[in-house]
């Protein structure tokens, strides 16, 4: 190899290595960027997990929206999440309260969390949760049952073509830890969110 070639090779290698490191960093940068992107656009059904204040803009009683509730358990957490009704019809602007019941079906106290998702995703930004068990992690004692309400509103800017909104709650197990806040102790504590 001639020396002018050796210089060129050195330059090329340096540049490609920088490109490589840049792309590796980019992959990790995509993780927060993805969240930001989903927050801005409201896609992906990711719900804002901070409590909203109740809006008193009046109820649009000309319009009905069906709200469905689906709960799912997951492997590794012997809990059941029940809901008092699977479907309600609401007017946009109307404040609605629905009771959800957590039951621990094992003889051990465990930590879990219900992770929310909204479908269709374009409705996500229009679901205002005033209070939700999904804001916090929670602990259930052995065979304990716990009923917690979900209080929510739909705002009237919900796209006109959406007649049905589905709220899905999936239970996930959490590792044992002492410093977690329970729903009961931190119901109004917005910092209890992950």
């Amino acid at each position: 190899m001639h020396s002018y070639q050796a210089d060129g090779v050195k330059k090329t290698v340096t540049r490609t290595v920088f490109a490589l490191l840049g792309m590796f960093a980019f992959a990790f940068a995509l993780v927060p960027l993805y969240d930001v992107f989903c927050d801005i656009t409201g896609i992906n059904g990711k719900v804002d997990t901070t409590a909203k204040s109740i809006l008193n803009d009046g109820v649009n009683s000309d319009r009905y929206v069906t709200v469905q509730f689906i709960t799912r358990s997951s492997a590794g957490l012997p809990w059941k999440l029940g809901v008092e009704t699977h479907q309600v019809q609401v007017h946009p602007g109307q404040t609605t309260e629905i009771d959800f019941t957590f039951s621990n079906r094992s003889d051990m106290a465990t930590w879990g969390r219900a992770v929310p998702s909204v479908s269709p995703s374009s409705a996500t930004a229009h679901v205002r949760k005033v209070s939700c068990f999904c804001f916090q992690e929670q602990r259930l004692g052995a065979n304990e049952n716990l009923t917690i309400p979900l209080v929510f509103q739909l705002d009237d800017s919900l796209p006109k073509d959406i007649a049905t909104v589905t709220l899905v709650y999936t239970l996930y197990p959490l590792q044992e830890s002492d410093d977690r806040q329970t729903v009961a102790s931190g119901l109004n504590n917005k910092n209890g969110v992950l």
Partner: peptide, 30 residues
């Protein structure tokens, strides 16, 4: 050069999710 580092990043995140308690891909942890 452009995409192999991204693959490396993804599997590194998997590695951390599995072994180091992160939650890149675990909805339960955000």
């Amino acid at each position: 050069i452009a995409v192999m580092p991204v693959l490396a990043g993804v599997i590194t995140m998997m590695l951390m999710d599995i072994n180091f308690g992160t939650s890149f891909f675990d909805a339960g942890g955000g």
